[in-house]
Design a protein around this nucleic acid. Sequence first.
DNA 1: CGTCGGGTTGAGGGTGATCAAAGTTTGTGG
DNA 2: CCACAAACTTTGATCACCCTCAACCCGACG
Lengths: 250, 250
Amino acid sequence: MLWQRERFAVVHPGDLLVRRLTIGTPLSANDIAAIERLPLTTKELPAQAAIVREGERPSQCCLLVDGFACRSKVTDLGKRQILSIHIPGDIPDLQTLHLRVMDHDLTTLSPCTVGFIAHDVLRTVTREQPLIAEALWRETLIDAAVFREWIVNVGRRPADSRMAHFIAEVGKRLEAIGLATAEQYELPMTQIDIADALGLSPVHVNRVIQELRRGGVLELRKHSVSIRDLPRLMELADFDDLYLHQSPAL
Amino acid sequence: MLWQRERFAVVHPGDLLVRRLTIGTPLSANDIAAIERLPLTTKELPAQAAIVREGERPSQCCLLVDGFACRSKVTDLGKRQILSIHIPGDIPDLQTLHLRVMDHDLTTLSPCTVGFIAHDVLRTVTREQPLIAEALWRETLIDAAVFREWIVNVGRRPADSRMAHFIAEVGKRLEAIGLATAEQYELPMTQIDIADALGLSPVHVNRVIQELRRGGVLELRKHSVSIRDLPRLMELADFDDLYLHQSPAL
DNA sequence: CGTCGGGTTGAGGGTGATCAAAGTTTGTGG
DNA sequence: CCACAAACTTTGATCACCCTCAACCCGACG
């Protein structure tokens, strides 16, 4: 992943945020300037590091500048469920701005660069510039739309379809930020992680991957995804990218 | 449900909204007045009526004044997944304020009274009074928190536990608005609906209900839930109400 | 009284879980 | 650079949870 870190090192984290927010909401020059002025302290984290944990009351939000992270919960029986995957440009704990206590964990999947923005600064800006508030609000709404699709995925799709949907979603989102082509991307997750994201056992995930490989749909080897037959994948996945709301709000 | 409709008929829908929003966010008298001034057109709907459908671009949000509703999606194989249950005081399509196109359906479960608030009015108010925006934003964040818990529920809990969790959640939320005691409430859902909410088959839902009944945990008969052993239910459900964020934001 | 939606029951099967062990890759320290 | 450990992947065998199909029952309602 080193190439990736270096690639993003040249991008100012504030720019990353501006680029992201202006996709959905038309911001004024004034708004954009305000976002760029946001004080941001960046930090490097190793893989598998906790960014925030369930029960904590953070006083800042985290902008993922580089690397992959995920949100997860653990049941009383010790089973882990991954709730979402996060990629550069995401603000995976934006909800802490208005929900004080974390109801789940946020963890890095790969080595990450994260930028932290203090809640009080963010709250001041959003109160003074309503369009910034709306742009951020919209981000959390897209988040929720993805959660909804995941409920459908784990609730109603068979394992192969579930897997295909997951691969399609992550690919689509990486493509939107220029980190993937339609058929090839890096995914720093073990089969155990994928199992936790899909609500399956690791053993079954392994078998599904092999089945998709044999079927010529996709290759999935050591953190690298290659889609061999995109139409088949999409059909198997029952994938409709509407829920990602990647086109502008208006 | 008639007693319920009459009960709520005396409450002005605007009050319902004020009461709900002030739980989480401290609003000024000015804010409260603005909310009460919001023009609201109410409408009566029968059970099983579509309020908004996937693909539509509504120009208003819907405040559920009385009755039950749910959000759902259908896969290409025709399987339905219910994404959330909504009770009086909820604004189940608040996300349409910033995400133009609906990515799922919103349907009544019982006869409902709904109040509609135009997007443009809502947008004006939220831009002028940031605390109202924050209060509404917070509502959508709690929504998302519930979605997350549902991912865990369908992804990682066995059928009986899943059922128990669902019953516990709805009870807890109804209790918060004074529509249920801890052990008794009305739930206008068929076993088919419950199956679609839990990602199970109707037949299996039936068997799980019987098992819980025999075990003395709960009764569930024709739209009426009676919890016989609340501690057992909670334990079985692995239920922690943290994710409902029912205590104030601050 | 007949119909219809919903609940209940039984039989049989399949998807995916669990358990266990053997490969394989990765990383680390000597 | 090699040796070793740890983490991850793969495979096989067995099992259970839950699904499907099909029939029947029941109460509500026209």
